[in-house]
Design a protein around this nucleic acid. Structure first.
Lengths: 194, 194
DNA sequence: GCCGTTTCAGAACGATGGGTGCGAAACAAG
DNA sequence: CTTGTTTCGCACCCATCGTTCTGAAACGGC
């Protein structure tokens, strides 16, 4: 009973997230967003209320694509096998233009406060996920008894941010594999049975 | 024989670098730059030729402040003691608003290409610095014989990027110390005599 | 085939972006 | 004090930003 849309919401959000990741919040101009997403200015405002709304929706959708990886850390039973799976998934996930979530952290003073709050929560939950599995690792003996689990969890979050950033300057795609290999050896994951 | 400047070039570059780090390249508007640096628009153009020139000069100056840390990695003799000193210096260095160098990587598609090239070179030299000392560490027996020095060097660069980014979301300043502690234990630096 | 509704494409809007021009101000030299 | 030179403060450009508006286009229902 009306003219059909020429776009699908998920696809729009994917493309918008990609542009935001590449250019940053201010760097992604509306004209480009219109061009890249395929929906026109009118619909953009009707659907999302403007650039800010589009950004938040895009970020939200982006975080959901990361949620699958995050969910691995909450699997039962907790333990090092989950970490092993996490890094496997991490390597399978492509970050051709960096990560919108990490970029948003760096743009703390530019993006809408709610957006930053979303990321903060996401990072905290990832950290908790690491902690949970590391603690189980200590209990099971996969990790040394006196291990500072909390520090190690923070370390892994920081490392993850860094590895994805490194991907932008890396010459080779295999670099990521080798870097993750260091972490796997460090955590003794090669020895963990799946 | 003329009206004196109300600014000093190094101070201007420091403040400009700080604003660029906080807001990003596009996010740092000329009006703010003028306000923060203290020099007026006229002088800004005379000295730096415009926003782009100011950015590159500020980035260059910023990299020089990091050069002292980088220089530790080139000290003779190479070895794990240099890495130990590096992380000591790293912890002493404050990154209250993130790191302009790392942000520039993220803004690859926004900043002038020369600026990105500068960072790429800097990162490569840091990686080479790590490699050099790690290789010496293997030779001296501080690191296990079969260690993949190249992968480990890349890993340390990535980790560094991540730790600084993590600082933005970290609740506590002590988090950095604990995170670096993980690396130090991993590399066996606590056992390395200074 | 017409009508009501919704989306589309593009023009137009005010506000603000980076960049420029100009007269007044602040020195040093004589 | 006068003069020459350089910076300063501010008003002024044009382009572009995000946003809004308008009329035509594309459907489903009757």
């Amino acid at each position: 009973m009306a003219r059909p849309k020429t776009y699908t919401r998920p696809e729009v959000l994917r493309r918008a997230a990609d542009l935001f990741a590449r250019k940053g919040y201010e760097g992604a101009h509306l004209a480009e967003l219109v061009e890249v997403t395929g929906l026109n200015r009118f619909s953009l405002y009707k659907e999302f209320g403007g650039k800010e709304g589009l950004f938040q929706s895009a970020l939200e959708a982006y975080l959901e694509t990361l949620a699958a990886m995050d969910a691995i850390l909450t699997r039962d039973p907790p333990g090092m096998a989950n970490l092993r799976e996490f890094y496997r998934a991490q390597l399978a996930h492509e970050f051709p233009n960096g990560c919108l979530a990490i970029n948003t952290i760096r743009e703390k003073q530019v993006v809408p406060p709610q957006a930053f709050a979303m990321i903060e929560k996401f990072a905290a939950s990832a950290e908790e996920g690491f902690r949970r599995n590391l603690a189980a690792g200590v209990k099971s003996g996969d990790l040394a008894k006196g291990t500072d689990v909390d520090a190690l969890a923070k370390f892994l979050v920081a490392f993850n941010m860094g590895m994805i950033s490194y991907g932008i300057v890396a010459q080779d795609d295999s670099d990521r594999v080798r870097i993750v290999g260091v972490i796997e050896r460090m955590l003794g994951l090669s020895a963990v049975r799946k």
